[in-house]
């Protein structure tokens, strides 16, 4: 069997003050979409930055991030830079601030082509117009000379995506690409990313806190909690039969997915406590918010249990089938 496109194993990110990502791992095959889901502070954005090699200097990453069999963490900065933007690209959360305000969008798209493919400025401009057309920006030959402040949020995110896919990367990391946008624009942007994934044969890591978009766009879902993997499953299985108490809590707290229930029939469920409440404890980070705590949970974080069909859960109750389907 060929090795996956990206294989993250035992990734830990340490700051002097703590470790927001601990022993995290997942893999992604060519052309696949993997969603990484978790609430604020779960370490999902840091994982993305670690894959890109953009962690702050105070942070130290250990483990392996193998891209096409090469460990990115072991590569010197110069070689990583040649991979960034060309083979692995990233779309950021905030389209309002991730474009340079004093450069036209055409130049910003062209600059990455000049950096990685050595195009002349005229050729880069022509490619920029093509790329704007590819991401469905109307009148690309006019927009190419616009400054970012003349574009709406959705348009800017399209430009950001055009810059990211300019060199046809094989892996695109999208860190909450739709969080800052209107709901109607969200669907358009996700559609666009999905179409580009198919057309350009790239793999897509979709980082999000929105379980609503997971079911429609992801091939696999990784649920992250306090820097660890809580559960991994196909979106269908995850939404139909969540196992980990955290995933269940998340689903119960989502208005669109709790079948039949809506705001009028009572308040939404919530997960008590905050993500920081177990910081520094030796056991499972979810213990303070969990209602199925077992004695072993307080001693050490539960290991990942394989449930078959590529499904992984880090919770002792996964071993008890009745408990899984009780709720």
């Amino acid at each position: 069997m060929a090795s996956p496109l990206l294989d993250v194993r035992g990734l830990s990110v340490r700051f002097p003050t703590g470790s927001p990502v601990i022993d995290f791992g997942f893999h992604i095959e060519q052309g696949e979409t993997v969603a990484v889901v978790g609430e604020s502070g779960s370490g999902k954005s840091l994982t993305a930055l670690a894959i890109m090699g953009l962690l702050p200097r105070r942070a130290a990453a250990t483990g392996t991030i193998a891209f096409r069999g090469v460990d990115l963490l072991a590569l010197p900065e110069k070689e990583r830079r040649a991979i960034r933007g060309r083979q692995v690209a990233m779309v950021f959360q905030e389209p309002m601030t991730s474009l340079n305000p004093v450069m036209t969008v055409g130049r910003q798209i062209g600059e990455v082509l000049r950096r990685h493919e050595g195009l002349s400025s005229a050729a880069a401009r022509a490619r920029a117009i093509e790329l704007l057309d590819l991401v469905r920006v109307a009148d690309p030959h006019l927009r190419v000379d616009d400054y970012p402040h003349r574009l709406s949020g959705g348009m800017r995110q399209r430009v950001v995506i055009a810059i990211a896919v300019a060199c046809r990367p094989s892996l695109l990391v999208a860190d909450e690409p739709t969080t800052a946008l209107d709901v109607t624009i969200q669907a358009q942007i996700l559609d666009l990313l999905d179409r580009l994934r198919r057309d350009l044969a790239m793999a897509l890591i979709l980082i999000t806190h929105d379980l609503g978009i997971v079911g429609q766009w992801a091939d696999r879902v990784v649920v992250m909690y306090a820097g660890r993997k809580a559960e991994e499953a196909s979106p269908h299985e995850l939404l139909a039969h969540p196992v980990h108490p955290y995933t269940r809590g998340l689903l119960a707290a989502s208005p669109r997915l709790s079948a039949g229930a809506n705001y009028r029939q009572g308040p939404l469920e919530e997960i008590p406590g905050t993500i920081a409440s177990a910081a520094g404890e030796p056991g499972c980070p979810f213990v303070p918010r969990c209602d199925l705590v077992q004695p072993s949970c307080r001693v050490a974080p539960p290991p990942l249990v394989e449930l078959g069909g590529g499904r992984l859960v880090a919770c002792p109750i996964a071993a008890v089938p009745e408990a899984v389907h009780a709720s």
Binding site: L54, A82, R84, T97, N100, M103, V112, R115, I163
Partner: peptide, 23 residues
């Protein structure tokens, strides 16, 4: 953010300073 974005595109220090920050 746009400087982080430029780093994510694999730009080197000189390009980031001259194109992204100095202007």
């Amino acid at each position: 953010d746009f400087v982080t974005a430029a780093r994510a595109l694999g730009f080197g220090h000189i390009r980031i300073v001259m194109l992204e920050i100095l202007p």
